[in-house]
Computed example of a mutant assay.
Amino acid sequence: MSRNTIDYRPFELPLPPGRARALPWISVIAASAVTSILPVVASLALMPPLGLLLLLTWRLLARFALRPWAAAPLGLFDDLVSGQPLGSSVLLWSLCFIAIDLIEQRLVFRDFWQDWLIATGAIAFCLTVGRWIALPLGAHVDPVLLAQIVITVMLFPLAVRAVAWIDRRRGDAA
C-alpha cells in the first residue's frame, strides 16, 4: 500500500512516537473494557468480543503496530475485565497470532476478503474454545455462540474502518 506524499495538513503537529505506538494498545484495551463495562442487560450473551476483534484487525491491517508478544498481556487484561477464566484469552489470542504468522508465511499478498476469512476463523476458534474452557460441556449455548460469532464477524468491516482511521491518525510518527 503506497502512501500519498501530498501533505494536506502541513501545519498539524504529528503525534509523538511514544503516543503513536501506544494507540493500538489503548484501542484494544478500551474495546475490551467497553464490552465489560457497558450496562447491557440481556438474557443471552450476544455482546461481541470487541477486544479480540480490534486485536485481530490491528494484526491483519497494520502488521507491525503490535509486537507478536502483545497478544498475551492484552489477553490478560481482557480476562481480568471480562470474567473469563484467567489465562484463556492469553492462550487463545496468542495462538491466533501464531496462526496468522503461519498464514502470512504462505500468503505473501492478501486482500480484504482473505483478511476477513482469517479473522472469521480466529473469532470462531476463540469463541468456541473459550466456551469449552468457561462452561460445562452440558450447557446448551450453541445457538447463542453461533449468533455471537456471526455478529462479531459482521462487525469486522467496521473494525477495519476504525483501525484504519486510528492508524492514519498515528501517521508517520510510529
Rank of each mutant, 00 (worst) to 15 (best):
N4H: 03
N4T: 07
T5A: 13
I6A: 05
I6E: 06
R9K: 06
R9A: 11
P10C: 07
P10F: 08
F11C: 01
E12R: 13
E12Y: 01
L15Y: 08
L15K: 05
R19A: 14
L23M: 15
L23Y: 11
P24I: 02
P24T: 09
I26C: 05
I26M: 13
S27C: 02
V28D: 08
V28I: 08
A30P: 14
A30W: 06
A30F: 12
A33G: 11
L38G: 04
L38R: 12
P39A: 02
V40M: 10
L44I: 04
L50W: 14
L52S: 08
L54D: 03
L56M: 10
T57G: 06
W58M: 05
L60N: 09
A62Q: 10
R63W: 07
F64N: 15
A65R: 12
W69T: 08
A70Q: 08
A72Q: 00
A72S: 09
P73N: 06
L74C: 09
L76G: 14
F77R: 02
F77M: 13
D78Y: 14
D78V: 00
D79S: 11
L80Y: 12
L80C: 13
V81L: 05
V81R: 10
S82E: 04
G83W: 05
Q84F: 15
P85S: 04
L86D: 11
L86Q: 12
G87K: 00
S88C: 05
S89T: 09
V90R: 07
L91D: 01
L92M: 12
L92N: 07
W93M: 11
W93L: 11
W93C: 07
F97Q: 04
I98T: 10
I98D: 10
A99Y: 01
I100L: 15
D101S: 12
D101G: 14
D101W: 08
D101Y: 09
L102I: 09
E104D: 15
R106P: 02
R106K: 13
R106I: 07
L107I: 04
F109W: 08
D111P: 00
D111S: 03
F112M: 07
W113K: 01
D115W: 01
D115S: 13
D115L: 03
L117A: 15
I118V: 15
G121H: 02
I123M: 07
F125E: 05
F125P: 08
F125K: 06
C126Y: 01
G130V: 08
R131P: 00
L135M: 11
P136V: 01
H140A: 10
H140Y: 05
H140K: 02
V144S: 10
L146M: 14
A147H: 03
Q148S: 14
I149G: 02
I151E: 07
I151T: 05
T152S: 14
T152P: 07
V153I: 15
F156A: 03
P157L: 04
V160T: 13
V160L: 06
W165F: 10
I166R: 02
D167A: 13
D167V: 00
R169I: 01
R169F: 10
R169P: 00
D172T: 06
